[in-house]
Design a protein around this nucleic acid. Sequence first.
DNA 1: TTATTAATCAAACGTACGTTCGTTTAATTA
DNA 2: TAATTAAACGAACGTACGTTTGATTAATAA
Lengths: 202, 202
Amino acid sequence: MARTKGSVGATTQKAILDAAKTLIVKHGFEAMTLRQLAAEVGVQPASIYRYIESKDTLLAALMTEHMDTLIHAWEALEDKGETPDEQLEAFVAFHIRYHVERREDVFIANMELRSLGEAARADVVAKRRAYELNLWRILEEGVKTGDFPETDLEVATYAILAMLTGVCFWYRPEGRLTVEQIIEIHQGLVMRGVVSGDFQAV
Amino acid sequence: MARTKGSVGATTQKAILDAAKTLIVKHGFEAMTLRQLAAEVGVQPASIYRYIESKDTLLAALMTEHMDTLIHAWEALEDKGETPDEQLEAFVAFHIRYHVERREDVFIANMELRSLGEAARADVVAKRRAYELNLWRILEEGVKTGDFPETDLEVATYAILAMLTGVCFWYRPEGRLTVEQIIEIHQGLVMRGVVSGDFQAV
DNA sequence: TTATTAATCAAACGTACGTTCGTTTAATTA
DNA sequence: TAATTAAACGAACGTACGTTTGATTAATAA
């Protein structure tokens, strides 16, 4: 056999990327083999090379695309809030909403930096930093206006991001809570912590 | 060559486990090869089998030992606090202090559940659940006594753990902040969140 | 309809994998 | 010192790896 009936390049391309994500999550990038990937797509190993330059560039493509899409999605968000409080709530909602829908990408982005080449890693790290800055600046602004108490901006940024991204590791669509409920709970935790309830806030 | 001068079983055993941790963090468990591991230890691949039954049991041993040690360390902690506030602060301090010192184990425990066999995975998951319950119960108690406002206990537990464990991913011993400073900041974030400062708390 | 391009295949390349085997040397015990 | 045990070795097993090559068929353009 050679070219199969009904085969379309764009379709195969997407199938390869989708299957690659699933396999990387399941086995890790280094451990995923192109033979597994080919089998998942329903194609011979050699055919993969019509769509990727090498195994390494496949990972780089997945990760940079994820970061680009994430950054662009935040930029495109209509209502980012006015006051620091509103901005922080908007960020929390956006981050959770976006990430739970892309749990495979998030898992890969968090785990496989180690497997990127030097250039690709630098690129992804820079993009991650750029995204983190969005939250950092909201916190900075809030502290400046006096809406938020003094705090270490770097640690607070990392802490909030870790907490929000952590949802990806336990969230299940069929679970007890909807995404919107989860967002509300996290907004409460971020804004007021565990101890300070509404009754204590202004 | 055969037995080498000065070779001691216990020493080699420890060297194997230490090198395995480093390699698993760097490459992922599936991608780590026993030939790499042997080279790191300075031994032939075949010699590894004097200390492990198989590659799979090596991972299981690393992960269950990590969970056992963690659970036991919390149990052995002297001052777990009296009031819910104090207990929560004690947990935050313990968790960060313990985890930043064992970043490799934490990374492996978080990443390589997927590579465990069914029995070992069930065991590790149960132990993780048991550890999480320590925090869960502190929160539950605090809500019951009225020290903490009503909240979703499950989500709050996961959120706090994600935030605290997240420190492992950026903490560096030579970094700007000491572990104790990082603990204080996180105690503030957990107890009062970003918005509610001391000036608003009781 | 014919020529061209797109999409796939089968086969093979050298290399490395986890693991087993029997042997050899060092340290310990009798 | 002699016998035993501990700790390593080198070589090999069948299998699978990422990738390259050239041929083959399907869809499209002329």
